[in-house]
Structures are given as C-alpha cells and as structure tokens.
Write a protein that binds this DNA or RNA. Sequence first.
DNA 1: CAGTATTTCCGTACACTGTACGAGAATAGT
DNA 2: ACTATTCTCGTACAGTGTACGGAAATACTG
Lengths: 235, 235
Amino acid sequence: MTRHDGAGVDPQQLWLGTARTGRGRKPAFSREAITAAAVALADAEGLDAVTMRRVAAEVGAGVMSLYSYAPDKETLLELMVDHVSGELPTDEPLTGDWRSDLKAIGHLQRALMLRHPWLPAALTARRTLGPQALAFLERALAALRPTRLDGAAKLEVFSQLTGFVAGHVGYEIAQAAAAEAPGRAAAEARYLAAVAADGHHPELAAALAAPGRPLTPEATFTRFLDRLIDGLDTG
Amino acid sequence: MTRHDGAGVDPQQLWLGTARTGRGRKPAFSREAITAAAVALADAEGLDAVTMRRVAAEVGAGVMSLYSYAPDKETLLELMVDHVSGELPTDEPLTGDWRSDLKAIGHLQRALMLRHPWLPAALTARRTLGPQALAFLERALAALRPTRLDGAAKLEVFSQLTGFVAGHVGYEIAQAAAAEAPGRAAAEARYLAAVAADGHHPELAAALAAPGRPLTPEATFTRFLDRLIDGLDTG
DNA sequence: CAGTATTTCCGTACACTGTACGAGAATAGT
DNA sequence: ACTATTCTCGTACAGTGTACGGAAATACTG
C-alpha cells in the first residue's frame, strides 16, 4: 500500500544527508545513477513506466536495492524533479528589468517541462526543494530584488509562477496528446457538436460556430504569462 | 495493469448513452448512487480511498458490478468530477460586467474545490466535459458575451481559468495539510534555514529574514485572479 | 406458456504494484 | 580473526484494476 499519512521524509536528512562512515559494504550504485535512469524512463515511456522494478532493471540492481538510495517511491520522484531542475540555467545575467527577467524564467520552466512532459504531474505531489531547485529559486529571488516585495511575497510569487507554468504546460501536453490520437479527437468534436445541437447550449453553439483562427500554445502561454507578471504590483 | 494507451471512452456514448431497452435484468444500483458514494468517500478519506472495492462495499454491490455502470476507474473519476460540478450555480443573474462576472465564476470554482479537496487532483487527468460541467461552461460563455473574443478564445479562457484555479487551490490545500502536521512543517523550516545559512543562498537568506506579514490564501487568490482577468484583452 | 435473447450481478483469478523482512555478502576498524 | 556496519536482493504479502464466465433475472417471441 502506498504511504499517505503525510509523514514524508525529513528534507534535511534527505538532501543534506550524512556522509558515509567508510564502514560497511561499498554501494554498487549511486543515487545519481538511479535517478537518471528513472528520469530517462519517464522521458521515454511516461511516468507510469517508472516502477521500482523497471528502474531497478534499468540500472541492473535488485528491486530492493533501490531502497538503500531512496526510502520511498515518492522520494524517488522528488529526486527526479530535482535532477531535471539542474537543467535550468542559473548563471545567465539578469537584465535588471524584473518583469522581463521573470518572464524569461517562466519560459525556461516551460521549456523544461516540455522536455520532460511528466514534470507537471510530478510537481503536483508534495515537494521539498532540493539543491537544484533551490539554485533556481535563488535566481528568481535575485530577479525580484528590484521589487520591494517582502520575503514571503517573493517566495509566493515564485511558487505561483511555477504552479501556473505547470498547469499551463500540463494542459498543453494533454492537448497535444489528444491531437495525436485522431479518432479520439474526432469523437470529442462529434460529442460537443451533438451537445451544441440540442438547443440547451446556445452559447456553446455560438462559440463552436465562430471558431476564429487557431492559437499556438506558445502564443497563448506568452499572453497569459505576460498578463500575470505585468499585473504584479511591487508592493 | 492500468490502462494508459490513450484510448479512453467515447464521450458521446458515455454521457448521452443509450437508454435501456427494457430487456434483461433490472439494474440493482444506479450510476448516480455509485458516483455519489465515490464522491462521499473521496470527501471523507481522500482520493486514494476511492478504490473499486471500497466503492462497491459502500453501495453494497459486488466489485465487478461497478463495471456495468462505468467501464473504467478513470471514467468513474470523470463521473465524480461532473457530479460535483452540479453544485455550481448556473442560474444566478450575470451583472453584465464580464470581468466581475468572470471573477465570481473563479471564486465559485475555488469554493467548490475547497469543499472537495480531491478535485484539483482529479482534474489533472484527461477529462471530457459532462452535462453538469457543460452547464457551467455555458454560463461562463454567457459571461464572456460582452467581449468580442472569438469562440476558440472564449473556450480557452474558460479552460485556462479552471486550470489556474485548480492549480492555486491544489497548492492552497497542500499548504494547509502541511500546517496540520506540525513536525513536518518545523522540519521543513529547519531545512530551509540550514540552506540559507550555508552562504550560497544569499537571496533566500534575505527573504527568510524579512518575512513580512503572513498572507491569507484567500487574499492571494483574489489578487492573482484579479490580475489574470484584468489583464485579458477583449481582442 | 415455454423458449430465447439480453442484461446485470458478482466470485474467482491474474498480472502488477510498493515495500517489509531477513539472510547473506562485503567492507573497515579493532 | 573478530565485530560492527552497510549494502544487496530473493521472497513474500497485501492491495490494486479488471478480464472472464457462470448464474440469475427480466422481457420479447413463438
């Protein structure tokens, strides 16, 4: 049975964990390698393919050996999230215009999530910030320096931004996946058309009748991101 | 094994499904009752408690009997979502000020999600709009009538709004849950303090040092929602 | 009134999940 | 050599979604 009693794992022990004493058998694998294998698996076959057995097979370990490197599957997911967070650049110079800096950060996050489509779903779970995520947070806070928001507000902006991007990209990915399955998309269109034709949904009928030109996800994202960030007041 | 081949279920058959022919054994339960039981279970014990066995036990049916009413567990989740969507009011008059109408819609959605905390997570999955959700969509489209957005843009606004609210409330719930477990929250605070003290995270240290007064989730939600909606241009 | 078609009910079974347990192997300090 | 420690991993177990198929119930047909 999956744990869900909210206990979780002490983040301090997880991320800043104790170094080896030298005593005892030498580890045959590494947290890094296991995490990387899990990420590769998720990239290639989706989050559902990431089972302890599959990951173990991928690194050539016995299943239970994984539990020497992560106490939980949930924790393994956290490790995966932090692992890919390392792909986010943290050293490019900031422009000093905090709004455009923040927008750039949003676009970086989106690109990362498109590269790892399982990421929005994995972020939904409870998550403590690992070192890589913290490095990126550090950068976001630096971008927010010109504002006079207090500390809590800055942290909140970051987490809202991340949540927004995750939500948007998750939706974007679902749309793209639906488009890949043409039968499914057609069935859905037929359904909506049937509903619109029943006379009880005039607004829907009107909306479907006047579609407008299709919007690229990129443009939509940019528009909403800009709205969100332009609307932030500096306190 | 859980299905994930993207096949899904034909929405037309699911929602507008064929009426009984009269032939054959009479159903001992109803889709409605099963869905309601599943919702009650999720409300009381969370989404993880919603297993086919538990739901069946709750309505007094054999496990496999559920499959006469929903082909899938995933479909059962869709039914649950639509079921609670019926709690959203669809007949209160609109003010004609589309921005404030839309904000009211956002607040209604938030209230619904707070009442059914599993809802944001359930929305993450692929979802076709059931009749109750469609009724509410109809209302949102009506609110957007004064704008001159084209049909696709209106639908997009609705789905973005829903996504935003789900993201926010999901985060809000996670925060509240963390606050309930004092040990966990304290551990997290200790961890962040330790990171801030390592010298490599000056911005984080500064942010933690100048916390500001705590923000109520309600106020934060309102602020972000307002920003998002005020920023929408009428095309 | 049989007979038959259809629908629903549900016990059993299966493949798969996360992970507890504990025996064995490898290493380092004494 | 002994002991403490650490890692490895086979086995086992409870729990999951659901395929299968027989039994029961209902309605239409002759």
